[in-house]
Amino acid sequence: MNAWLQAAAVLVTGAGLVSAAAAHRLTGDVRRALAVLLDFLTAAGLVRLAGAPSWDGILAAAAVIALRRLIGSGLAVSRAAP
């Protein structure tokens, strides 16, 4: 099952890259495109966690999710800045 989950996670990551490009074309804003990419990366991390993950897998998923929060907060700060 792990091989399937890995393949699905890679597919979701690829879909995230294409969707981020589409979001950039749609809105013309890099921050929004980045937010979409981070959503997809989170989805990929969650799919990867569904199997029987090792400590490395758990740490990688935690790092992606923490990074997502960090970048999200950074984007909010940059939007609020004059």
């Binding site: 597919l11 979701v12 294409v18 969707s19 589409a22 749609l26 997809f40 989805a43």
Partner: peptide, 16 residues
């Protein structure tokens, strides 16, 4: 989650 990502992918591409 996979179906949601696939659906969002299709919608983003269509909207783009």
């Amino acid at each position: 989650i996979f179906i949601g990502a696939g659906w969002a992918f299709v919608q983003f591409v269509k909207a783009g």
